[in-house]
């Protein structure tokens, strides 16, 4: 049966004349967005800028796209690229582990751990990454042997610094401890963004702190920190170009070495930029996958539920306010 908007059966007292039919026909017309001058102007501007970019990129002989093409997949560039990727992956893994540990120390209730993490973050933030890389690479000049033992006393194990520190390990260590300091603060921010209620609900349900973090709090932290962390990781991946100062040949150093001989500066820098774009795209795809996975439940309501279905009047919940009557009766006395 047809119902009116307020749920009563439609009474057929109104004439279903031609006016009603016309109204229905008009109501069936599809809805389009309003034509807008602003939109057309924006299209024209975009086309104009696009053409300029096209001209600059493809009709300017100085780019030397043929040279770019010949180097893009050349063995030397690819090996530099692989070094960059390797360095980025290792640095990210170690850096995030260090960051997690430092953040955990920073939030600890042991004063010693808190102080240690604060000192770490303070020093590492103060240090330009370039200086850090140089210091670690030349650490042998400062500490000839890494030894485990009693300070000022005997040592049990001695390893010469030169054996541990190579260009590669110095690069990984330097960038990791740098990323560690920055990511620690991001982790801490993520943890502090949790509402106290979430941790309390975990406690009330008897979850151990570890389980609470793995199951409930951690995923929420990851969701909160993904954009900031993606920034850090992408920054680190570009900062790998700094390791050229200690002679490690990653992507940028490789192309620099090539154009130092061939003088094809612009095409080779273009090759590097293209690869950086590719890697950044990958990182951003990863970021959006992470955000989608950990954002579940946080997206806005999928389809709003009609309010009327949510009220359960049928239960006959509570007698309406006996207290008022009780107290009213008392007042009369």
């Amino acid at each position: 049966m047809a119902l009116t908007t307020n749920g009563r059966p439609m009474t057929l007292t109104e004439p279903v004349g031609s006016t009603t039919r016309r109204h229905q026909d008009l109501a069936a017309l599809p809805i389009r967005p309003r034509p807008s001058l602003k939109r057309w102007i924006s299209y024209v501007l975009a086309a104009y800028v696009g053409l300029i970019a096209l001209e600059m990129l493809f009709f300017n002989q100085n780019w030397q796209w043929d040279v770019v093409g010949s180097y893009l997949f050349s063995q030397i560039v690819i090996s530099g690229l692989l070094n960059t990727i390797q360095l980025t992956v290792l640095t990210t893994v170690f850096g995030l582990i260090i960051g997690g540990v430092i953040a955990w120390c920073r939030l600890s209730n042991l004063a010693v751990l808190r102080t240690f993490s604060l000192l770490y973050i303070w020093v590492m933030r103060a240090m330009p990454p370039l200086v850090m890389l140089l210091l670690i690479y030349f650490v042998g000049a400062l500490v000839p042997n890494f030894s485990i033992g009693i300070p000022f006393g005997p040592s049990f194990l001695d390893i010469p610094a030169n054996q541990v520190i190579s260009q590669f390990s110095a690069a990984v260590i330097g960038l990791s401890i740098y990323l560690g300091a920055y990511s620690a603060e991001i982790f801490r921010g993520g943890v502090q963004s949790l509402t106290a209620g979430q941790a309390e609900a975990c406690k009330a349900l008897g979850l151990s702190p570890t389980k609470a973090y793995v199951k409930v709090l951690g995923p929420q932290v990851v969701r909160n920190i993904t954009p900031a962390m993606a920034n850090e990781v992408i920054t680190i991946f570009k900062n790998t170009s700094l390791v050229s100062v200690i002679g490690y040949t990653e992507l940028l150093t490789t192309v620099q070495n090539v154009y130092a001989v061939s003088f094809e500066t612009i095409p080779l820098l273009t090759v590097a930029v293209i690869w950086y774009l590719v890697l950044t795209s990958l990182a951003m795809v990863g970021q959006s996958l992470l955000e989608r996975h950990f954002g579940k439940g946080f997206n806005r309501r999928k389809g709003s539920v009609p309010r009327s279905t949510q009220v359960e009047g049928s239960e006959g919940p509570v007698a309406p306010n006996p207290l008022t009557d009780v107290l009213a009766a008392k007042d009369e006395k």
Partner: peptide, 11 residues
């Protein structure tokens, strides 16, 4: 325990 603000796990 049942809290005033529910404290359901949103994820």
């Amino acid at each position: 325990m049942v809290f005033q603000n529910f404290n359901l796990f949103p994820n």
